[in-house]
């Protein structure tokens, strides 16, 4: 807690806060629009000038969505799949990132090159063969079809490889000298220092699964298995899209991710404060 602020610091604080607030307002304004839109019926959403006053259709839109379209299933499916994916994927990516960052081994360059190549080839190109694999495995319409193929997310591996570089080698060496096993070092020494990065990774993995659209669209077969983006897409038609319902669904779909972000973000700032407390 800071109590004594010099006048200079106050001015600086105000300036920084003002700039961030203006930018933040620009970031949030669209979300305000989304909330307003979800309180209207289609015909009132699109008007000139833009309709920025909330309407009275939110409840109707939500009822249509959750009762009429069974959107609750989708939220549940997405939450479950994204949570499992973030936990398992977090483990897989962190372990791989650790290997790349803190070991020197034969084939390291080639293997990391493969990670980059997988990152580089657009997924649209591999959609068809991946779908064929799922058909062969008889995995259509299953959770594992959503979770397993992209569990080793190149982005996550890359993220952890980079952030692991800041773990001091001496720390690991010292533990080895003390005779600690390799997996114990990883679990009890390295991981605890990586909390900010792990929190970030968790959010990104969750988000990657939560927002993924085309691949789930292809492998999911029945509406009770749909994830949120697939369910939202199914609300779209050519001439009869209920945009009130669709945008209410979009708004609802933002909330769990924001909740997770709020829950995990304390770990981004924990480091410095914790360090200060320790002293």
């Amino acid at each position: 807690m800071r109590i004594n602020r010099s006048p200079q610091t106050r001015v600086a604080s105000l300036a920084v806060s003002a700039v961030v607030a203006i930018g933040g307002a620009l970031m949030l304004a669209p979300f305000y629009w989304l909330i307003v839109a979800s309180t209207h019926r289609t015909r009132d959403i699109f008007s000139n000038p833009p309709n920025l006053v909330p309407g009275d259709q939110l409840w109707t839109n939500l009822v249509n969505l959750f009762v009429g379209e069974g959107f609750g299933h989708a939220v549940l499916n997405s939450t479950l799949v994204a949570t499992i994916y973030a936990l398992l994927g977090g483990l897989v990516c962190t372990a791989a990132g650790y290997a790349f960052a803190k070991f020197r081994f034969a084939g390291q360059g080639v293997l990391f090159g493969i990670v980059l190549v997988i990152l580089a080839l657009p997924s649209q190109v591999t959609l068809v063969p991946l779908f064929q694999i799922m058909v062969q495995l008889n995995w259509l319409n299953t959770y594992q079809a959503l979770i397993l193929p992209n569990l080793a997310l190149p982005f996550g591996i890359f993220l952890m490889r980079q952030t692991m570089q800041s773990v001091p080698d001496e720390l690991i060496q010292a533990a080895r000298v003390d005779g600690a096993g390799e997996f114990r070092i990883f679990a009890q020494i390295v991981l605890p220092t990586m909390r900010p990065a792990l929190a970030a990774l968790g959010i990104f993995l969750f988000l990657a699964q939560w927002n993924d659209f085309v691949y789930p669209l292809i492998v999911l077969r029945t509406s009770d298995a749909y994830t949120v983006p697939v369910a939202l897409a199914s609300l779209q038609g050519l001439s009869d899209t209920d945009y009130g319902q669709l945008l209410a669904g979009t708004m609802v779909s933002v909330l769990p991710v924001l909740g997770l972000f709020l829950f995990l973000q304390r770990h981004f700032v924990a480091g410095i404060l914790a360090g200060a407390v320790k002293q």
Binding site: F131, Q132, V214, L217, I218, A233
Partner: peptide
């Protein structure tokens, strides 16, 4: 069983199935 896939989502879904030899 009638599945409401959504439009334009349905085109990516059908096209992928077609390109995979009609699977699924």
């Amino acid at each position: 069983k009638v599945e409401d896939v959504g439009n334009p989502a349905i085109w990516d879904k059908i096209t992928t199935g077609m390109a995979a030899g009609g699977a699924g």
